[in-house]
């Protein structure tokens, strides 16, 4: 029984790291642009396909392909930001959060459906990072999962380092706290918005490329991560990167244990997604801005 618990927990943490990776991108976009990106799951999907084609068309090995997918996703997200999100920055703009939700929702519908036409309807799978499974007693984890979790952790560590220790990272943080004071010290806030959306897209795209050999790629793969990412960023507090990481891992873990131990095994997996949503609703009831939410993150 203890073995079973430990194995399920280990797998839950691996999944949680991937959740965290998707959610941090969403939270960074929110912290800067103050919009909820409803197309985040679609950026994750696009990243997966970018990685796939870098491997199959350009012959790049799977691991460097993840980096390439992140770079392409960054450029792709920046193009979206330039094309669709610039109205958010005009001072006369009213109801920015409504605009943000709607424009990204339209984008999600567009990307999900054009993906069927461009990439085809059948799931695609890039080659494994490393074939085989790690076997430790009763614990079996495929190397692909280990690479995804390890790669995800590495990206998250680099991200935290970047945000805290580099000039650009600190500039991002400054703009997220106060656009006016940031501009006083000479930070071009519009460039930071562009950069933040690109960074969010790169994180989502990297996650998509990392999970591709595990889950396979399909045009509708963004639907579930989309909702889960919302749950995570709310639990972690919109705009809080470390909160998202902790909440992501916790959600992965608790979802797995929920499926593993729910007395009614027939219904359990059906309610797995509802479980996270339900926890999130409870948290919002008692803390209307999330667990680690900063108050300035509430919309103006």
């Amino acid at each position: 029984m203890l073995d079973y618990f430990l194995i399920q927990s280990a797998n839950g943490i691996v999944i949680g790291v991937i959740y965290a990776l998707i959610a941090t991108g969403l939270t960074i976009i929110f912290a800067l642009l103050k919009i909820v990106n409803f197309a985040h799951g679609e950026l994750y999907m696009m990243g997966g396909y970018f990685g796939y084609y870098v491997i199959t068309l350009a012959g790049v090995p799977p691991l460097p392909a993840v980096v390439a997918a992140m770079a392409i996703s960054f450029a792709f997200a920046v193009a979206i930001e330039r094309g669709l999100l610039t109205p958010l920055y005009s001072p006369g703009m009213e109801r920015k959060s409504d605009y943000g939700i709607l424009i990204t929702f339209g984008l999600a519908v567009f990307l999900r459906n054009i993906a069927i036409i461009i990439f085809g309807p059948f799931p695609l799978r890039p080659p494994s990072f490393f074939d085989g499974d790690l076997v430790l007693g009763g614990l079996i984890i495929s190397y692909d999962r280990l690479v995804a979790a390890g790669g995800g952790l590495l990206i998250l560590v680099l991200l935290i380092f970047f945000l805290n220790r580099t000039v650009w990272g600190q500039a991002l943080n400054a703009v997220s706290q106060s656009r006016e004071s940031a501009s006083i010290v000479g930070i071009n806030s519009e460039r930071m918005y562009m950069f933040a959306f690109g960074l969010g897209g790169a994180l989502a795209g990297g996650a998509g490329a990392l999970v591709a050999p595990i889950y396979s790629l399909s045009p509708s793969m963004g639907l579930v991560p989309d909702t889960q990412a919302f749950v995570i960023v709310i639990l972690g507090g919109l705009g809080s990167v470390s909160g998202s990481i902790i909440a992501g891992i916790l959600l992965g873990l608790s979802e797995n244990l929920f499926i593993a131990f729910l007395p009614d095994p027939n219904r359990g997996p059906s309610y797995a997604n509802a479980f996270g949503l339900f926890i999130m609703m409870l948290v919002l009831l008692f803390r209307p801005t999330g667990i680690f939410g900063r108050h300035h993150a509430a919309m103006e």
Binding site: F230, V231, I234, M280, L284, T289, M299
Partner: peptide, 12 residues
């Protein structure tokens, strides 16, 4: 709740 929190809560 207000803004995005309200939107996500109702969506949930």
């Amino acid at each position: 709740m207000s803004g995005p929190y309200l939107a996500i809560f109702t969506m949930a």
